[in-house]
């Protein structure tokens, strides 16, 4: 024990000083990759997307034989980071991890520096994080059906929290209102943390959020859960019905993540990245870590450029309509 920990400590300090020197190294076999690969995460460090990225970065790096650096380029709902990668050198050394926001950006933002379908080479889907509909624990309705009836009857006083314009919770909330046929008073927050804090504190009535954030609160009984928004139940919350089971089949949404390379990246490089992604998603450690977040890697056939493109096309269609109907615009 002491030996490994000493080694680890040396490694930790070494990491700070030696990486630059190591960066030039990399594997010599067959061209790409010859240097560090950067995965740009367009959201803050420690957030769900960042977490997912860091989970897969290590096994991907092992497969590729190069170091992977995760870099957070935040701003404007992820569009700043996406913009940066769209305009980066198409050499496979700068790639992007983005989520559902890629399919909502064109509807939300004017003057984007990129076009989701045209500015990128898709590498593959990564995971689809389910969302849950949760309420403060003393909220009256007990089931999803009751919730719909209740909010229709009390539309003037029910409050629906979300984590800000364009956030997954906001999108899911819009879809809920469409599916239930009701217009509610939305209460936006700056991120999920504060929104969930006020939900647990009973200041707002209900919201929609990723299992990553809610599963701990649900199992502890701090919030009341109605349904999960994916076609199948979630392993970590086996008693929670799906929206279809609970009678609201129109409410289907998941925070799907995908990896992108800039347009023009050579096909063999994209192929290598896809292979590395598949290897990472089959890694037992990654599967275990994702299970703790209430999600799982996508099936192998979905971790491909084709499946990724199809998903993006489908999602762009759905969200441009929902967002236009709701009259939401970020700029």
């Amino acid at each position: 024990m002491p030996t490994t920990s000493t080694l680890r400590m040396i490694a930790a300090i070494g990491v700070l000083s030696l990486t630059a020197a190591c960066g030039a190294g990399g594997s010599a076999s067959g061209g790409y990759p010859e240097q560090n690969i950067t995965i740009v995460v367009p959201f803050s460090a420690g957030g769900p997307t960042d977490t997912v990225t860091r989970m897969i970065a290590e096994p991907m790096a092992a497969k590729l034989g190069a170091k992977i650096v995760v870099q957070n380029v935040e701003g404007a709902g992820g569009t700043v980071g996406a913009d940066e990668v769209a305009n980066a050198n198409p050499d496979g050394y700068t790639v992007l991890m983005h989520h559902i926001g890629m399919s909502t950006a064109p509807a939300l933002y004017a003057n984007l520096g990129f076009k989701p379908l045209e500015s990128f080479e898709m590498i593959g889907l990564v995971t689809e994080v389910p969302m849950t509909i949760v309420a403060r624990k003393d909220f009256e309705p007990k089931t999803l059906q009751e919730l719909v009836t209740y909010v229709k009857a009390n539309a003037a006083k029910v409050t629906l929290a979300n984590a800000g314009v364009g956030a997954a919770s906001h999108l899911c909330g819009l879809l809920f209102q469409t599916a239930a046929g009701v217009k509610l008073q939305e209460v936006p927050y700056k991120g999920t943390g504060p929104a969930l804090t006020d939900l647990v504190g009973g200041q707002v009535d209900f919201m929609c959020d990723q299992t990553t954030n809610t599963s701990g609160q649900i199992t502890a009984g701090e919030v009341k859960a109605y349904a999960v928004t994916t076609p199948e139940r979630v392993k970590s919350l086996p008693n929670l019905p799906t929206t279809a089971e609970a009678g609201l089949p129109g409410l289907k949404v998941s925070v799907w993540h995908g990896l992108y390379a800039p347009k023009g990246t050579p096909q063999d490089v994209v192929q290598k990245l896809t292979e590395a992604l598949k290897t990472a998603l089959a890694d037992q450690k990654v599967i275990d870590q994702m299970a703790k977040l209430g999600t799982e890697p996508v099936k192998a056939e979905d971790a491909t450029p084709q499946a990724h493109r199809a998903k993006l096309e489908e999602q762009l269609g759905i969200w441009s309509k929902v967002i236009a109907d709701a009259g939401v615009k970020a700029s």
Partner: peptide, 8 residues
Amino acid sequence: FVVGLRLR
């Protein structure tokens, strides 16, 4: 910044 903090 570059060597120590790995600024990209």
